[in-house]
Simulated assay, not measured.
Amino acid sequence: MPVDATLPYDDDNIFAKILRGEIPCDKVHEDEHTLAFRDINPQAPTHILVIPKGRYVSWADFSARAQDAEITGFVRAVGTIARQAGLVETGYRLLANTGGDAHQEVPHLHVHIFAGTNLGPMLAPSHAQ
């Protein structure tokens, strides 16, 4: 179910439960501001989810309310994870859905890292303008 980026944070979302240790994850990286783990339903050979540890619904929410250290740490973590996974040479895609039109499903900011195959065009030609 898509979420509205203007909704308040839901402490019962799956990523909040993962952060609290209530649901296990296949962790690939963790630091002060960030947790990254393999997606349980991968859409590419490499599919890693990167989430901030703070209570942020979306990229819009995060960029408006997060402290500079959180923003810097999160962005640096995404790059570190890609480098450590060996994705830089062949390439990778970052995706962060925000709101209903983008089909954001979990009301906690998350960035998908996709890699391991030719990912094709970003949008189907019928959607491009």
Score class of each variant (00 low, 15 high):
residue 120 G to F: 10
residue 82 A to K: 09
residue 123 L to Q: 12
residue 2 P to V: 03
residue 118 N to V: 05
residue 95 L to E: 04
residue 115 A to F: 11
residue 28 V to W: 10
residue 93 R to M: 11
residue 82 A to P: 12
residue 87 L to F: 06
residue 112 H to R: 07
residue 62 F to S: 01
residue 103 H to A: 10
residue 96 A to D: 08
residue 76 R to A: 06
residue 2 P to D: 01
residue 67 Q to A: 14
residue 14 I to E: 05
residue 110 H to E: 03
residue 25 C to T: 09
residue 42 P to C: 08
residue 2 P to G: 04
residue 2 P to K: 07
residue 2 P to A: 05
residue 44 A to E: 09
residue 33 H to S: 06
residue 10 D to G: 00
residue 70 E to A: 05
residue 55 R to H: 07
residue 70 E to Q: 10
residue 126 S to W: 15
residue 102 A to S: 04
residue 52 P to E: 00
residue 81 I to H: 13
residue 47 H to D: 04
residue 13 N to M: 00
residue 62 F to N: 02
residue 81 I to A: 05
residue 28 V to I: 12
residue 77 A to I: 07
residue 78 V to R: 13
residue 104 Q to M: 06
residue 104 Q to H: 09
residue 22 E to T: 14
residue 31 D to E: 14
residue 115 A to E: 11
residue 96 A to S: 13
residue 124 A to D: 14
residue 95 L to T: 11
residue 117 T to V: 09
residue 17 K to A: 01
residue 128 A to M: 08
residue 80 T to I: 13
residue 103 H to L: 14
residue 9 Y to V: 04
residue 61 D to V: 09
residue 57 V to K: 00
residue 36 A to I: 12
residue 71 I to E: 05
residue 128 A to C: 15
residue 90 T to D: 15
residue 108 H to N: 02
residue 23 I to Q: 09
residue 17 K to N: 07
residue 76 R to L: 15
residue 68 D to W: 04
residue 54 G to L: 07
residue 31 D to C: 12
residue 83 R to P: 02
residue 16 A to P: 00
residue 55 R to K: 11
residue 12 D to N: 14
residue 76 R to N: 12
residue 119 L to K: 14
residue 125 P to C: 10
residue 62 F to H: 05
residue 95 L to H: 09
residue 121 P to I: 03
residue 117 T to Q: 10
residue 41 N to A: 15
residue 6 T to V: 15
residue 47 H to A: 03
residue 59 W to Y: 12
residue 106 V to I: 07
residue 6 T to H: 07
residue 78 V to E: 05
residue 45 P to T: 12
residue 24 P to R: 06
residue 2 P to I: 05
residue 94 L to W: 12
residue 81 I to G: 05
residue 126 S to A: 14
residue 36 A to E: 06
residue 15 F to E: 02
residue 113 I to N: 08
residue 41 N to Y: 04
residue 72 T to G: 12
residue 26 D to V: 08
residue 48 I to R: 01
residue 92 Y to G: 13
residue 40 I to P: 09
residue 69 A to T: 07
residue 123 L to D: 13
residue 6 T to C: 06
residue 16 A to G: 01
residue 35 L to D: 03
residue 76 R to M: 10
residue 8 P to H: 00
residue 70 E to F: 07
residue 87 L to W: 05
residue 8 P to M: 03
residue 10 D to H: 03
residue 109 L to H: 01
residue 38 R to P: 10
residue 22 E to P: 10
residue 50 V to M: 02
residue 80 T to P: 13
residue 108 H to T: 01
residue 47 H to T: 08
residue 39 D to Y: 11
residue 19 L to M: 00
residue 62 F to A: 13
residue 47 H to F: 06
residue 5 A to P: 11
residue 95 L to W: 08
residue 48 I to W: 03
residue 46 T to M: 10
residue 110 H to K: 02
residue 83 R to S: 15
residue 102 A to D: 03
residue 8 P to Q: 04
residue 23 I to P: 00
